[in-house]
């Protein structure tokens, strides 16, 4: 049963942290977006039970919180991979060939537009509408790191590099 002990400990921590975040924002419904951002920062996504907890705490119907969480592209209701590979498909990147890079990376990782996270939770691949680094188009961002002037080959190499690094661990 140590596993269940671990699980419950994990859950306790979860709500302890949410409470801290809620207190930090005075449980103010107007601060829902910063609250959700802080929650996502903590858990990397917005788990349903946490959202329900947040809703009750700030005094909003859960449906409203769900509505806000699903409106903004940055909020994820599913867990994301350890490495979030975001491919810029802004105008500048698009005209410089961002789609072939996306396709190459997806192919390497066996992902599609619908299936965006690898089963081992290592990678999530998604597109973003503009990262504002158009001067370097086409651009790929891995977590916070920006990689400019990409090609399909460079994209795949980047992914390979991460896989190799992880395997070493």
């Amino acid at each position: 049963m140590p596993q269940s002990v671990a699980r419950s400990t994990q859950m306790m921590r979860k709500f302890e942290k949410v409470c801290q975040i809620l207190d930090q924002y005075d449980r103010d419904p107007a601060k829902l977006i910063p609250i959700l951002q802080a929650v996502q920062e903590e858990y990397r996504y917005l788990p349903e039970e946490v959202l329900t907890y947040v809703a009750t705490s700030v005094g909003l119907p859960p449906a409203r919180v769900f509505g806000v969480a699903t409106f903004y592209a940055h909020f994820a209701l599913e867990p994301k991979g350890k490495y979030v590979v975001r491919l810029c498909d802004g105008t500048a990147c698009h005209v410089k060939g961002s789609i072939p890079i996306l396709e190459a990376i997806r192919e390497r990782l066996g992902l599609t537009a619908q299936k965006t996270t690898t089963p081992d939770m290592l990678f999530t691949v998604e597109t973003v509408s503009c990262l504002g680094a158009c001067g370097l188009a086409p651009v790929v961002v891995v977590n916070e790191e920006v990689y400019g002037q990409m090609t399909p080959e460079k994209g795949v190499a980047l992914v390979e590099e991460i896989i190799a690094k992880e395997e070493q661990k």
Binding site: L32, Q37, Y72, A73
Partner: peptide
């Protein structure tokens, strides 16, 4: 300083206001 959460439409004034108020940016 408030960080947006990824919605182009929030560049529209009234949507931006909704977003600052913690709502869907409509």
């Amino acid at each position: 300083v408030m960080e947006g959460a990824g919605a182009f439409v929030c560049g529209e004034e009234t949507a931006l206001i909704a977003s600052v108020e913690g709502k869907r940016g409509m």
